[in-house]
Amino acid sequence: MNASAPVIRMQHVSKWYNPHFQVLKDCSLDVTRGEVVVVCGPSGSGKSTLIKTVNALEPFQQGTISVDGIDLHGKGVNLPRLRARVGMVFQHFELFPHLSVLDNLDIAQRKVLGREREEARARSVALLKRVDLSAHAEKFPGQLSGGQQQRVAIARALAMDPVVMLFDEPTSALDPEMVSEVLDVMVQLAREGMTMMVVTHEMGFARKVAHRVVFMDQGEIVVDAPKEEFFGAVTNERARVFLSKILAH
């Protein structure tokens, strides 16, 4: 792939849940390699839907999305293969409760990427170390705190060597004291140059590592601006109101 081509290119994407309800309205967005894009907006504005169209978890009716140069709607596209290269982290972690932490990290490497047991295990062990959870390798998800589970979930996604990582409100289901341990991992990841698209209201995170901030409202991308501009002098009225609300507390 051309190194400077966007990792995610979303053009004029529209989606309807039914003929009377358009959840995404003509959304266009590029995420280039190494870029961190934060998506924010009021509840119900379509942030989750937008991010889930990127790995085709949500279908869309109009427009085009390509990931690493591959058109999601292209002929003969192998969606599972494509998704394997896009890491996703969910609000509620979604670890597999019947598998140990290590097996959670191993399973897709082996069954999707076809890695040998030892190779997968080595990768998993290294990633667990990186998210500082080596001591919990043999535990089951139910034995971990929320913050620990989310770090395992990040490691599980990274184990697939993704070209881009998607996060859908990764800290909003966490107790406040656990938010920073997850954000720290994400900040480190961003600084290492991972391409990231992050739905979050953690503006501290956005300030620290985002390159661009996207503001959505009622299914539309209302603002798409460099971080400095967004926090400095955002001119959009709706975005200003939203920002003042979430920054107030």
């Binding site: 599972p80 996703m88 670890l95 019947h98 069954k111 999707v112």
Partner: peptide, 27 residues
């Protein structure tokens, strides 16, 4: 099972049968 379990399996690149076999049915 939580709805997100299937999404998590799918997002990791599992096919639908794999998602059932490795993620949904064991639970």
């Amino acid at each position: 099972l939580p709805r997100g379990q299937q999404a998590a399996g799918t997002a990791l690149g599992f096919t639908l049968p794999q998602t059932y076999w490795y993620v949904l049915l064991p639970m």
